[in-house]
Design a protein around this nucleic acid. Structure first.
Lengths: 225, 225
DNA sequence: TAGATTGTTAATCGATTAACAATC
DNA sequence: TAGATTGTTAATCGATTAACAATC
């Protein structure tokens, strides 16, 4: 178990974890090797070996691999999935309510307690059992429950205001879906979730693929001539 | 304008683009410098300078910057936002319908034509003006309109089946929200959108911050003693 | 024992950062 | 002209990959 784990490793860990959990559930092997995991994710075994050895508390067994249950526990511990963290969502619009109702968060150690919105029609309603609160009520909830994570799914125009609100309420980590460059004081973490970035990568890759195909076709035509 | 632009650069470009468009809309300056853009995104000016010079068709003016309108056009061209691409969404559940109704896609050159679902209750309905179709009808739409992008928002259990379906229908790029490691033939691009990965990074950063704070407190206590 | 896989150390690769002459 | 910013080339940094002895 080493300190200073790279961003890339951290982002691969949840994938490993999900896979390992499923293997365990299926009552599979007691040990699992890096190469097995790597094959499943189409990664090189070396990268997986390094990742796992970095978070595993006890070393893996040469020739065998890592003990499955211990490995799962170690990754969960490293990712902090054990001490479930409470969160609120600001903006109970389309995306906000999709996230409010998303069952999978508990798997990642996140427990969403409430939505927050300005819309009178939404305030007081429940979305998948989670209440939609007004700002004032939510303020009290956040401080009483000592909530540190806020998910921001509001339109551009409201983003900075609601961000300031969250920070003043005591939120220390903001998962920002608003595509606004938020200004926050030191000591607050912002994670930007950007649809556009992923889409750009997809678009460029697709284009590149078509270009290559075009090239092959041209090549083929040239040959025919 | 260089070839082989890095993944990192590609993922920063949509952010620049949005910012530049807004500047232009506000009727701001005719030229914009890397340092201005960098300041807004808290990036180093060098990284922005490199990024922009890679996609800009005409060189920037030393001491002045890049011509705003030309730069916007160049980024749009590079990202392929000019030739709008049609797409379908498989899985008209919560997340699927949130995406179906998401206005912002057009900004990124994507036009979602329809949702696809197995649920009899959904088939035939409209979500934000977009029809929800059964697999057979969608198959014909995809081939008739020559659609190449599919967005996959189905549960784990259906993911690979629906992926195969999309591929056989002619889809060449899949934006995968299903957290399943999809198997696709060569020539099909898959982009995994993984909530868990981002969440992991947020979680670890938050933890690190609390640890640091703890350290400071301990330091303080030690001093007091 | 033989084969597989581990941990560790060194080499490679690619992106970011630094340096600097050119120029608006 | 002076200051700012460009394009380009070199240095640094960090992640991935390769190599290999140790060991189950």
């Amino acid at each position: 178990m080493t300190n200073n784990i790279s961003k890339e490793t951290i982002m691969r860990l949840p994938n490993y974890l999900g896979y390992l959990r499923r293997i365990k559930e299926e009552g599979g092997a007691e040990y699992i090797s890096s190469s097995t995991v790597a094959a499943h994710f189409k990664l090189t075994p070396i990268v997986v070996k390094k990742d796992l050895s970095r978070v595993s508390a006890n070393p893996g067994l040469p020739g065998v691999g890592f003990e499955l249950s211990a490995l799962i526990a170690d990754i969960e511990k490293f990712l902090g999935y054990n001490n479930v963290k409470d969160a609120v969502i600001v903006g109970a619009g389309r995306l906000g309510s999709a996230l409010l109702g998303f069952e999978g968060f508990s798997e990642y150690g996140i427990n969403i307690l409430a939505g927050i919105d300005n819309d009178e029609k939404l305030i007081g309603t429940y979305i998948d059992g989670k209440p939609v609160l007004c700002k004032d009520k939510a303020l009290r909830l956040i401080s009483r429950m000592n909530i540190h994570i806020g998910i921001l799914t509001v339109p551009r125009s409201a983003a900075q205001t609601m961000c300031d609100y969250l920070v003043s309420a005591g939120i220390r980590a903001i998962w920002n879906f608003s595509s606004v460059e938020l200004k926050v004081p030191q000591g607050v973490v912002v994670m930007n979730e950007n649809i556009a970035s992923t889409l750009a990568l997809l678009s460029v890759k697709l284009q590149k693929m078509f270009d290559e195909k075009e090239e092959i076709t041209l090549e083929y035509r040239r040959e025919k001539i």
